Computed example of a mutant assay.
Amino acid sequence: MGFRVIKTAAASLLAILITDALNIPGATSAGLLAILGVDVTRKRSVRSISSRLFASLLGLVLACMLFYFLGFHYWVLAIYILLAFPAISKANFKEGIVTSSVVVFRVFQGKEIGVDILLTQVELLIIGLGSAMLVNLVYMPNSEGAMMEIRRKVDGLFSVIFHHFSLTLRDPEHIWDGKELIEANRQIERGIEEARRASENQMIHPDGSWNIYFYMRKEQMENIQSMMHQISQVYERLPHGVLTAEIFDQLSKDVIAEGYTGKSEGLLIELEDLFKEMELPTTREEFEVRSAILQLCHELEYYLNISKKYKAPTAKKPQKRADSAV
């Protein structure tokens, strides 16, 4: 937000200086138009400024017709609002309603309609909005470092979550408040927003790797919630749970490694084969717990399949930036 204020000040000052240098009346209006045109991303800026420009031209034409036939009265402004605002919204220029109002009110204040008046308003629009677009296009903050930091936090939280899964499977009496789940969700949503903003700042060949990473984590987060449900049903210690805990121990390491290691997947395949060789449960309690553990393994398999779908294996050359572990 602080950087946006700096950009807004720069765009406004630039618009005022250009207007004053060209001896065009209304330099402060150009500065106001520049303030309205500054946005958070390059693509959004282009869309917003285009919308503001066309909305202002549309509003200017309609206002001039009203002022010409009805005169410069305050009630005419009310009629303008009643007619122009719905028309501008219907034309999909809703963002430009305020900008168009600034231009129209300037014409009303002058109490005169003429080619030179209209030309001046168009010049102010071009200078004000053009200054905002120039500042937006020249520089946007690089969010690569911020996204990398968020990724490290998410991976670290996943690692802690899997460690607690392992502890619970070894000791069903293990107490865990689950705060890492809430924080991981928050960081993932933050990362999605940051990745979207970074993508909109890349006008040519946008890199979608960060979007892929954070949406992958969001999908896996839903899968982890399902794992939580199954683990909550493991109410007694069994060898099956201890063996499954070893996979989560490995996964807690894999999740913070670079690339898809495949180690956890290999352990899971071995465990599933081992389960098939074990004797059937002899009590209802053992049956319920083993059933929950088996379903937990299916959820874990789904989690790993998501990783395989989006992540490069470590045997290949690591991809840049967002390519992270399981």
Rank of each mutant, 00 (worst) to 15 (best):
L82Y: 04
R197F: 04
A315K: 13
Y235P: 06
V242N: 06
N185C: 04
R47D: 12
V107T: 12
M1L: 10
P25E: 13
E265I: 07
R190Y: 03
F214Y: 05
F54E: 05
I192F: 02
T261S: 15
I256Q: 10
S307Q: 05
V326H: 12
I35Y: 04
F275L: 12
N92K: 15
L271T: 02
A87V: 08
H73D: 10
E301L: 11
S131R: 02
P239S: 04
M221G: 08
S226D: 13
E183Y: 09
E270A: 14
L181A: 09
R290H: 03
K253E: 14
V122S: 09
L33D: 03
D20I: 00
R152F: 07
I161W: 01
L36G: 06
A91K: 05
G31Y: 03
F162V: 10
A78K: 02
V61K: 02
F275M: 13
A63G: 02
V135Q: 04
E265C: 05
L134Q: 01
N23Y: 12
I188D: 03
F105N: 14
A184Q: 09
K253W: 02
I231E: 11
N223L: 10
Q233T: 11
F108D: 01
E189F: 06
S50Y: 09
M203W: 07
G96Q: 01
V102W: 00
E272M: 12
A87L: 15
I182N: 13
N223C: 14
E95G: 00
I35M: 15
M65N: 06
G71D: 07
A245D: 07
K320M: 14
Y80H: 09
D323H: 05
D323E: 11
I212N: 09
S226W: 08
L304Q: 08
G128E: 06
G2S: 14
T8R: 03
E288P: 01
T314C: 12
Y74A: 09
E183A: 10
S45L: 00
Y80K: 04
P141K: 06
F287E: 08
G59T: 02
R44S: 09
A312M: 15
L243W: 13
L137P: 01
